[in-house]
């Protein structure tokens, strides 16, 4: 088994054992529940505001999972071992990001379907919302790797991660919310996919550079 596969497999089982997507999903549904409570149940209003708010809720739910992503590896000494692998740290970081996407990102994208319907989104848009969120959470995971790696040594770094990462969430949020709102769906979807690919390519490189410094 390659180091990439071994890391991916281990992260999947650790994340699963740690509750998997349960907490972020609960967070996501809790946040979307508050939307009609805050805005009132009027259908027309919800149909406009609901889908973008689903994107924001998904972004925040992803964000909440980042704090311990590398901090645990730094604190228990796992990072030292990762640096002795024949696989580059970039690949191991990518494996962790991929596991995060599988365990948290994809379930969030699927959970967006009932949430969108509850928020009165047009039913014909729901597949596009789910697909765009599947890509969007990949972008969030890639960007999140960098934030998590930069703050791995900071105690209670959750708020700091948010401050660092949120401005970089702007592009996927813009394109993703456009898909969810039914505006220029085709090109917006392509642009979300671009964000996801870019984040998946650059995120692990920057995160690995930061982790090497953390191990010093």
């Amino acid at each position: 088994m390659s180091a990439f596969a071994a890391t991916f497999r281990r992260e999947l089982s650790l994340m699963w054992a740690g509750g998997g997507a349960l907490t972020p999903l609960g967070y996501f549904f809790g946040a979307t529940l508050l939307v009609p409570l805050a805005m009132g149940p009027e259908r027309a209003l919800l149909a406009v505001a609901g889908p973008p708010l689903i994107w924001i809720a998904a972004a925040l739910a992803m964000l909440a999972t980042l704090e311990r992503l590398f901090q645990a590896d730094l604190e228990d000494g796992s990072l030292d071992q990762m640096l002795l692998s024949p696989a580059p740290l970039e690949a191991l970081t990518l494996a962790k990001g991929l596991a995060l996407w599988c365990v948290v990102g994809l379930p969030l994208a699927l959970a967006a379907a009932p949430a969108a319907i509850a928020l009165q989104a047009p039913v014909e848009l729901v597949p596009a919302i789910v697909a765009s969120l599947a890509l969007g959470t990949a972008a969030f995971a890639g960007i999140g790797l960098v934030g998590a790696a930069l703050t791995a040594g900071v105690r209670r770094g959750g708020v700091l991660i948010a401050l660092i990462v949120l401005p970089f969430f702007a592009p996927p949020i813009i394109f993703g919310a456009a898909v969810a709102g039914g505006e220029q769906v085709g090109s917006a979807m392509a642009l979300v996919a671009g964000c996801a690919l870019g984040a998946a390519a650059l995120g692990p490189i920057a995160a690995a550079a930061a982790l090497r410094l953390q191990a010093e």
Binding site: L150, F168, P171, F175, L191, G198, A206, Q214, E216
Partner: peptide
């Protein structure tokens, strides 16, 4: 020293991202 290196990584990530942010906001 570590703060300097980590902040430098963040700064460079931001530098790569700024044109993307700019493009996305213009598009928006």
């Amino acid at each position: 020293e570590r703060a300097a290196r980590l902040a430098a990584i963040l700064c460079l990530v931001g530098l790569i991202n700024l044109p993307i942010v700019k493009f996305s906001v213009d598009w928006w």
